[in-house]
């Protein structure tokens, strides 16, 4: 430290630091520090760590947890009640039977339910950017994406998944489908790819919030809205809408295209039926793009801080 303290203007800064060097203060030897550091935890390890903390947090309020789980189940089940009520009046919807619509509903809700359970609170990112708590995540030695993805992880979200799974199971029993090995295999592939596509939508939406902090509603339109859309057969929607979710925003690959193959239904827009097997590719592409969007978003945040 300089012996003679001096006030420095901008120009005098260099002078002050020189003076400091000249006095040659030596740091205390044997200081804390040069300890060996293990590599920072990866994505999945971070995710499970944080998710585990949130589970413990929710279990601190056991009664409220049970109520939320039941509530989640009932609220999401209401969507299916609406469909069931419709079928009490009509025999088919857009040319699809009750069991077929239930199959679409079950696949859409299960895939979305899984994605939602995994990273449903990632849309709170905008709030974290606004109130500055994102910074506290950036000073931890762990991937930020995993930290935000696991944010507010809650087992009560299993309510939706359970409900979707039950409807899917019921529809599989009620469907009159000639099952082939290919069709049987396609069911889990469809569910996993669908989950991945919805996950990509969640991540991309969150990345967008680095620029537009109030975009959570826009994101909901694509996630929750997309889920609801896919619960109905494509024949009930306008062609342009179907085009949009096929070519531009590939939600059709979540369940429509593979499910129509399983149900032996004609494809919309005259699309070829081999598209039924492309969801894994589409999902991989979506995840890659979402990952890139996330990186760009984080970079933008770290260069602007807002």
């Amino acid at each position: 430290m300089p012996d003679a303290p001096e006030a420095v203007g901008a120009a005098g800064v260099a002078g002050a630091t020189d003076a400091m060097d000249a006095t040659g203060v030596v740091g205390v030897a044997g200081a804390a520090g040069v300890t060996e550091r293990l590599p920072a935890p990866g994505m999945w390890a971070t995710y499970t760590m944080i998710a585990g903390m949130w589970i413990r947090s929710t279990l601190a309020y056991r009664a409220s947890f049970v109520m939320m789980l039941v509530g989640n189940f009932l609220v999401t089940a209401f969507d299916f009640v609406v469909i069931a009520l419709m079928f009490s009046q009509v025999r088919s919807l857009g040319g699809y039977s009750f069991a077929e619509v239930a199959f679409l509903y079950g696949t859409s809700t299960t895939a979305f339910g899984l994605a939602n359970a995994l990273l449903g609170s990632i849309d709170k990112l905008g709030a974290r950017v606004r109130d500055g708590t994102l910074d506290t995540l950036l000073v931890r030695p762990a991937p930020v994406l995993a930290q935000v993805a696991a944010d507010r992880f809650g087992l009560q979200r299993l309510g939706r998944l359970l409900q979707g799974g039950l409807v899917l199971g019921g529809s599989l029993l009620a469907l009159h489908v000639h099952w082939t090995v290919l069709k049987v295999l396609l069911v889990p592939v469809m569910l996993l790819s669908g989950t991945a596509i919805f996950c990509a939508v969640f991540v991309a939406g969150a990345a967008f919030q680095f620029w537009a902090q109030d975009a959570a509603e826009v994101q909901s339109a694509f996630t929750y809205g997309g889920q609801t859309l896919l619960q109905y057969p494509p024949t009930v929607f306008a062609k342009d809408m179907v085009r949009g979710v096929t070519y531009i925003f590939p939600l059709a690959f979540v369940n429509w295209l593979p499910a129509l193959y399983i149900l032996g239904r004609p494809y919309p827009l005259g699309l070829p039926s081999w598209l039924a097997f492309t969801p894994p590719l589409v999902a991989a592409l979506c995840l890659t793009l979402a990952g890139l969007a996330w990186r760009v978003g984080v970079r933008a945040y770290r260069s602007t801080g807002s």
């Binding site: 430290m1 300089p2 003679a4 303290p5 001096e6 006030a7 420095v8 203007g9 901008a10 800064v13 002050a16 630091t17 400091m20």
Partner: peptide, 24 residues
């Protein structure tokens, strides 16, 4: 023992606290 003062994005003072009182 050492204090740095920043304002308008610039380092205005870097030294001992006592000196800061004098400087100001």
């Amino acid at each position: 023992k050492r204090v740095m003062v920043i304002d308008h994005g610039r380092l205005m003072y870097d030294g001992a606290l006592a000196g800061l009182h004098e400087a100001g």
